[in-house]
């Protein structure tokens, strides 16, 4: 009995020793393994995660950088949360007068939508993947809902008008080739510097980086950018919304004061006589 226990204990010790030796061996081998295998995980970082809209704000720049699998193409989207937009539609009245002829509502549309990539999206991503991840204008066009409901060419036409409207206010943009990549210590580093439009209102924006191989998205990483009012802008914005009576009264008193003040200055100078 005692001998049997000794044998079991001895066998268990041998097994432990064997496991430890194997682990140690793999650890040694791992230390000498090529570095790029360890860098496969996609990372994304925005240089500004908070953009403050202060008195002298005229937009900003945001750079996105990170590490990706070597040889992968990259697509970077910067979007706000999806919501609805109601716009006035212009049309001809009496055959020759252009005026507002009704409303058009767009559902599931982001207020801001920017797509940047290492190469033309059509060349690096399959149509199915574009639709699945809503990447590129054609995919966004299929994703949204319009009221009144339209189909075919008419739907495409009004979606194109919608994109034109958003591009005119700098909230929608696309580019190919502006995302640059470089190999460093066996790792692929990517980088893009983009102009952040002052038209983008306060809110949370999501930066999503997609790594693409063989026309398929193999990995994605996210970063956040928060845009918020600060200082005088915040005080006035909050007052206009939450204390509208006082805000209106101050606006009127300031205007009356300025009018009288300038009147007095000119009056003393003899201008009014």
């Amino acid at each position: 009995m005692y001998r049997e226990q000794n044998i079991r204990s001895w066998t268990a010790s041998l097994n432990n020793l064997w496991r430890m030796s194997i682990t140690f061996l793999f650890a040694i081998l791992g230390a000498f393994a090529p570095a790029d295998d360890a860098a496969a995980e996609l990372t994304a970082r925005a240089n500004h995660d908070r953009i403050k809209i202060d008195f002298f704000y005229h937009g900003s720049t945001v750079s996105i950088s990170g590490i990706s699998d070597p040889g992968a193409d990259l697509i970077i989207t910067m979007t706000s949360a999806e919501g609805h937009q109601a716009l006035k539609k212009k049309g001809k009245v009496a055959g020759f007068l252009w005026m507002n002829v009704g409303d058009m509502k767009f559902e599931h549309v982001p207020n801001m939508y920017a797509v940047h990539s290492t190469r033309k999206i059509d060349d690096i991503l399959s149509p199915g993947e574009m639709e699945k991840y809503v990447i590129g204008y054609p995919a966004l066009g299929k994703h949204i809902e319009m009221t009144p409901a339209l189909s075919g060419e008419e739907r495409d036409r009004w979606f194109n008008e919608f994109v034109k409207f958003k591009e005119a206010s700098k909230l929608y943009t696309t580019s190919a080739g502006k995302v640059t990549t470089a190999m460093e210590n066996g790792k692929q580093k990517y980088y893009i510097l983009t102009a952040w439009p002052y038209q983008a209102p306060p809110g949370d924006y999501i930066v999503t980086v997609y790594a693409v191989k063989d026309k398929t998205i193999v990995e994605k990483a996210e970063a956040k950018v928060r845009v918020e009012h600060a200082g005088v802008v915040k005080t006035l914005f909050d007052m206009a919304k939450n204390n509208a009576g006082l805000y209106g009264a101050i606006s009127i008193i300031a205007a009356l004061g300025a009018g009288f003040g300038v009147g007095l200055v000119f009056g003393k100078g003899g201008g009014a006589h």
Binding site: L236, A240, K241, A244, G245, Y247, G248, A249, I250, S251, I252, A254, A255, A258, G259, G261, V262, G263, F266, G271, A272
Partner: peptide
């Protein structure tokens, strides 16, 4: 002005100040 500020929140004080800097002098 009061009705717009109170009901629609559409009066921009900073823009108004910039405009009136010019308009008060212009009016004189």
């Amino acid at each position: 002005t009061f009705l717009q500020a109170y009901t629609n929140h559409t009066v921009d004080f900073i823009l108004a100040v910039l405009l009136l800097l010019g308009s008060t002098v212009g009016a004189q």
